[in-house]
C-alpha cells in the first residue's frame, strides 16, 4: 500500500554512548522534551486540501458551477480553449468546462476511494484481527488468502472483474474494496498480534471476558489507531487505481472521473496543442494523492511514537 517496510531496530550504540557521556541528563529528560509530538504544518495543509476537495465534491450540485456536460463553444474559435476568466482550467476538445468537470470528477474518484478503503477496513480489519487474535489454523488460512491476493498484480484482478461485469460505480468500488482487504488485513493482523499478549488483554482474559468482548473492547480501539493512518494511504492507492483502470478503458462508464479526464488529454496531439486538458486533472489528482499520503504518513509516525511510549 505504501513503502511500509519496517525500519530495523535503530542501532544507536554510538549515539547512545555519545549521548550518555555528552550529558547524563539527556537520557533522563522528561518525555515531552525528547519526543516532539506535533503533526507539523504540512499535515494541516494536507488536511485542509483534502477537506476542500471533499466538500467541493459533496456540494458540487449546489455550487455555482458550470454544467460539466455542456459544450461552451465560442463563436469563431474552435475548442479546446486555454484557461481564461470564464473557464479557469480551460476546456476540453468538446468545449466542456474543465474546472467543473474536475470537481464533478472528484465525486466519482473520491467515492471509489472511500468505498474501497471502507470495504478494506471492515473486512480486512475483521479477518486480520481474527487471524492475529486466534492464531493457529485461523491465522494460517487467512494469511494464506492474503498472500494469494498480494502475490499477483492487483490491477490484473481488477481488470478481470471490471471487464467481465458492468462498469458501474458500484462494481468498481467493490472491486477495489476487495483488493484492499489483503493489505489492510495484514496490518490489522500484525497490530493485533502485538497487542494480544499485552497485560491488559491477558488481564481481561483471566477475568473471564469472552473472545468477542476482548476483541471489541480491548483490541479494536488499539488496532483502529494505526488503521486510521492506513486508511488515508489506502484511499490514495484506490484513487490512483481508479485512474489506472481508466487508462485501460475500464473505469466507471458514466460521468467524468479524474482518470478518464487525464486520458482525454493524454494523446500526443492534445499534449502538444492543449496540455491543460491533461494537466488540470493531473495537478488536482496529484495534490490530493500527495495530501492523503502525507497526512497518512505523518499520522502513522505520530502514533508509532505513542505506541513505543506505552
Amino acid at each position: 500500500m505504501s513503502d511500509g517496510v519496517g525500519v530495523g531496530p535503530v542501532g544507536v550504540e554510538m549515539a547512545a554512548g555519545m549521548e550518555a557521556s555528552a550529558g547524563g541528563a539527556v537520557v533522563g529528560l522528561s518525555q515531552d522534551e525528547t519526543t516532539k509530538r506535533t503533526l507539523g504544518i504540512g499535515f494541516w495543509i494536507s488536511i485542509t486540501w483534502i477537506t476542500v476537495i471533499v466538500l467541493a465534491a459533496a456540494l458540487a450540485p449546489w455550487l455555482p458551477l458550470k454544467d460539466p456536460d455542456s459544450n461552451f463553444i465560442a463563436a469563431g474559435e474552435r475548442p479546446p480553449y486555454s484557461p481564461n476568466g470564464t473557464h479557469w482550467f480551460g476546456t476540453d476538445q468538446d468545449a466542456r468546462d474543465l474546472f467543473s468537470r474536475t470537481i464533478w470528477g472528484a465525486r466519482i474518484s473520491l467515492t471509489v476511494g472511500f468505498v474501497a478503503i471502507a470495504c478494506g477496513m471492515v473486512f480486512g480489519g475483521l479477518l486480520g484481527m481474527i487471524a492475529g487474535y486466534f492464531r493457529g489454523w485461523w491465522d494460517r488460512v487467512i494469511s494464506f488468502v492474503f498472500v494469494v491476493f498480494l502475490s499477483f498484480p492487483a490491477l490484473v484482478l481488477a481488470i478481470l472483474i471490471t471487464a467481465l461485469l458492468e462498469r458501474s460505480l458500484r462494481t468498481i468500488s467493490i472491486t477495489l474494496g476487495i483488493l484492499s482487504i489483503a493489505p489492510v488485513g495484514r496490518v490489522a493482523r500484525a497490530t493485533t498480534i502485538s497487542f494480544a499478549d499485552r497485560e491488559f488483554v491477558l488481564a481481561a482474559r483471566t477475568l473471564g471476558a469472552s473472545h468477542r468482548r476482548i476483541m471489541i473492547k480491548e483490541l479494536l480501539p488499539n488496532v483502529l489507531i494505526p488503521m486510521g493512518a492506513l486508511a488515508l494511504l489506502g484511499m490514495a492507492v484506490a484513487v490512483v487505481a481508479e485512474g489506472g483502470l481508466a487508462f485501460l478503458g475500464l473505469s466507471v462508464e458514466k460521468g467524468s472521473t479524474w482518470g478518464k479526464m487525464i486520458l482525454t488529454g493524454a494523446g500526443s496531439r492534445d499534449l502538444q496543442k492543449a496540455p491543460w486538458i491533461a494537466f488540470a486533472p493531473i495537478i488536482v489528482l496529484f495534490l490530493t494523492v500527495l495530501s492523503l499520503n502525507f497526512a497518512g504518513d505523518r499520522l502513522r509516525s505520530y502514533f508509532d511514537v505513542r505506541e513505543t511510549a506505552l
Binding site: 554512548g17 555519545m18 550518555a20 557521556s21 555528552a22 550529558g23 547524563g24 541528563a25 537520557v27
Partner: peptide
C-alpha cells in the same frame, strides 16, 4: 568516571572522531 562524566567523549575528542 561514571557514564556521563565525559570520559568517552574525551578520548574521541583527542582522536578527532566526533559527530
Amino acid at each position: 568516571g561514571e557514564s556521563g562524566s565525559g570520559k568517552t567523549v574525551l578520548s574521541r575528542s583527542i582522536m578527532g572522531l566526533l559527530p
